[in-house]
Amino acid sequence: MTRITLQDKTGPFAENKDIARDIRVKMILPALSEQEEVILDFEGIEGATQSFIHALISDIIRKKGPETLDRIVFKNCNGTVQKIISTVTEYMQESG
């Protein structure tokens, strides 16, 4: 299991897409390739943009399939962040 604490990297407002890409490429994808479960911990994140969440997870859904979501846990998300994550996961599956 790999736990990734986002607030250390993004601050309380997660909007920097370059950081999102780095987390995806350097941390999430390698862990998924090792068949590990990934916990994305949003503790301390007050808000996030759709662009950030898209840069964080859309390419994973596109390339590895929506079933990969079964191995990612979005932890400690507030209501707003949950809705943005749900939006991205939903439109990625609709367009797949």
Binding site: K17, R21, Q50, S51, H54, A55, S58, D59, R62, Y91, M92, E94, S95, G96
Partner: peptide, 10 residues
């Protein structure tokens, strides 16, 4: 559909 890794037009 689904855009690129960075953009989706939202």
């Amino acid at each position: 559909g689904g855009g690129t890794e960075f953009n989706v037009g939202a």
